[in-house]
Simulated assay, not measured.
Amino acid sequence: MNQAEAEAFLFREVRLLDRRKFRDWRQLLTDDAIYWVPNGDPDSDPQRHCSIVYATPAMVDDRLERAESPFYWVGDPPIRSVHTVSNVLLERVDATQAELACNQVIYLYRDNDQRRDQPLDVLPAQCDYRLKRAGDGWRIAYKKVALLTGDGLVPLLPPII
């Protein structure tokens, strides 16, 4: 993996999220992946402290099942996102693994729900990824989305950010 491949992978990943193709995004995860959105201190131990999300692939499947349910009131109208990815840093890479870091700004909105007195929710984040080679592509073994505002009031979120 080189810098251009790392950036292209991240751009494709967030494009799936922005298009609400969560099941396709789920296919990017390895069988033993961890998806983590810390609550507050991004260096805390997720086994000992509360997280906004701390999920294995099975838990992600459960989140998506609930989000697809007609009883998922928080998703009506759906929460949509626009991700901006920058400052992509390829920290370590070898033939089978790559570690990436990047900054993201995640804009959240709902269809037909924007008024002048309710601006978009803006979530700046620092993200860490560990990717594993799978066949001729890469999959996510670890993703941490450390929201810079994660220690305060967090707006309603889509199933995956």
Rank of each mutant, 00 (worst) to 15 (best):
R116N: 10
R115T: 15
S44F: 14
Y109I: 08
P77M: 13
T84C: 07
I79L: 13
P70M: 10
G40S: 03
V60F: 04
P57W: 01
V85Y: 03
M59P: 00
V105A: 06
P46S: 08
A67N: 06
D61V: 10
N112Q: 11
A58P: 00
S81A: 15
H49T: 15
Y72T: 00
W73H: 04
Y35W: 06
P78S: 03
V37E: 02
W73G: 01
L108Q: 02
H83E: 05
N87E: 09
R23L: 15
P70Q: 05
D62Q: 09
R92Y: 06
S81F: 11
T30Q: 01
R110N: 06
L28Q: 10
D94R: 03
R80T: 13
E68I: 01
A67E: 05
Q27G: 07
N39C: 12
I52C: 09
I34H: 10
P77Y: 12
R63Q: 03
I34F: 14
D117M: 14
Q47G: 11
Y109W: 15
R63I: 13
Y35A: 03
R63M: 14
V60H: 02
G75P: 00
L64N: 06
Y109C: 09
L89F: 06
Q97I: 06
V53C: 12
L90R: 07
A67D: 09
S69K: 05
P77S: 11
N87W: 06
W73D: 01
R26M: 12
N103Y: 13
Y72D: 00
V85L: 07
Y72F: 12
Q104N: 01
G40Y: 10
S81K: 02
P57V: 07
V60W: 01
P46H: 10
R26A: 14
Q27T: 09
H49Q: 12
G40R: 02
D41I: 10
A33Y: 03
